[in-house]
Each structure stands twice: as structure tokens, then as C-alpha cells.
Amino acid sequence: MAHNNIVNSLDIQNKKLDHKSLIPTPNGFVFKFIKKDNDFVYTFIKGEFLKKVGLSPACIVGKTLHELSREDKANEKYHFYETAWNGSIINYEENVNGFHYLALLIPVMADSQVIEVTGTAIETTEHQKSALKIQELEKLSFGVAKQWLSHGYSGKH
């Protein structure tokens, strides 16, 4: 997972977000969470991406980060969620059931305190596949060049 700390505070006072307008359909989802008992609880999630990875809002809403993820993944994601809960906008990359996405977490504040965090995510699976193909091609090219050099081929005629 990678992340970038983009901005250090966003204060949205008394504004309701229309989550339907935020869903990057058909390859994304939006979600919200709060912090409760030192863990993060999902309070909302919606988007076509969920169907693609075999999940539904009913199996996520009301659950904690640690209930839904393996321990190592939950601990890694906890860092990003905690950063957002502390008032920073942050993004991270994740892989669910072989599908990749990039998520942006935005803290929602009232009276200078974070009351919830809203996340917007978009699928990046095809981008990841392209990046892997480029890496494979580079490795193959390097291997061919190494073989040529070991056999004395200099490229000069």
C-alpha cells in the first residue's frame, strides 16, 4: 500500500455529502467510517466495485476494520484510517480478491473535531496489470541484453 499526505485539514461544517454523486461508477465505491473503541467501524458503503469483488454493503456496514481484514492488512490500513481520523486527507492503494483500487480518505469535521471519514475509491486493476507487463518486458529485455553481451555481441557490424 502506498499513501500520500495531501492536505492537513478539511473542515466541513454542517454539510451533508450526497454520496451517490461521489461514486465513481461503474468501477468504484464510496464509504464512511467512524472510530469506536480504538477501531474503525464502517457506517456506509456503496458502489458497483463491491459486486465485482463478491461483497455487499450488508456484509460490511457495522463491521470493524479488524473484523473484515486479515490482521496484517488491517494493521497496515489502520495507519491510513488513523491519519485521516487525525484530520489529514490521505490516499492508499489496496487489493481485494485480486482487484486493485486507490482510495482517498477525507475527514469530515464539526466544531474542529473529526466526526467521520468519507472514502472514495476507484478501481486500478487494469493500470496495475499494465505496470506489471512493463516490468516483465523490462526484465526480459535486460535478460536478452545480458545474454548478448556475455556472447560478445556489441551491436557493431
Rank of each mutant, 00 (worst) to 15 (best):
K35C: 15
F31I: 03
S21W: 15
T43M: 01
D39V: 02
T43I: 04
G47M: 05
G28Q: 08
K46S: 13
E48P: 13
N14W: 05
S9D: 12
F31N: 08
F44W: 13
S21R: 05
T43E: 10
F44I: 14
K51N: 15
I12G: 12
N27W: 00
S21T: 04
N8S: 11
T25P: 11
V41W: 10
V41F: 07
L17D: 01
N27V: 08
P24G: 08
P24F: 13
D39M: 03
N38R: 07
N27K: 12
I34L: 01
K20H: 15
F31G: 08
F44C: 01
S21Q: 15
L50P: 06
V30S: 03
L17F: 13
S9Q: 03
S9F: 03
F40T: 00
V41M: 10
V30W: 03
N27T: 02
K16L: 04
D37K: 14
V30F: 02
E48W: 04
I23T: 01
K35T: 04
K15G: 13
K20A: 12
N27A: 05
E48G: 14
L10P: 02
K46Q: 09
K15N: 07
K32D: 13
K35H: 09
I12T: 14
K16W: 11
D18Y: 13
K51L: 05
G28D: 01
N8K: 06
N8M: 10
L17S: 03
F44A: 15
K32Q: 13
S21P: 01
H19Y: 03
N38F: 08
T25W: 03
K35R: 08
F29A: 01
S21K: 14
G28R: 09
V41L: 13
L10K: 09
D11R: 05
G47K: 01
G28N: 01
K46P: 02
F33E: 01
I45C: 11
K35M: 09
I23Y: 00
D11W: 09
S21I: 05
P26C: 14
F29N: 04
K35V: 07
F40Y: 14
K35Y: 02
L22P: 05
K32W: 00
K32R: 10
I34H: 02
K15W: 03
K36V: 15
I34P: 04
N14L: 08
T25A: 15
D11G: 09
D39N: 08
H19P: 08
F49N: 00
G28Y: 01
F29H: 11
I23S: 00
T25M: 11
K36R: 01
I45N: 07
K16M: 11
L22Q: 07
F44E: 07
F33L: 04
V30N: 06
K46V: 08
P26A: 10
E48L: 15
F31E: 10
H19K: 05
I45F: 05
F44M: 09
F44P: 00
G47N: 03
K46F: 15
D11F: 12
S21G: 07
D11Q: 12
I23H: 03
I12F: 14
Q13C: 11
F29L: 06
D37S: 11
L22E: 06
N8Q: 04
K36Y: 14
I34D: 02
T25C: 05
I45T: 14
F29I: 04
S9P: 07
N14P: 02
L17T: 02
K32T: 05
F29T: 00
K32V: 06
K36E: 13
K46M: 12
E48Y: 11
K20S: 09
I12P: 07
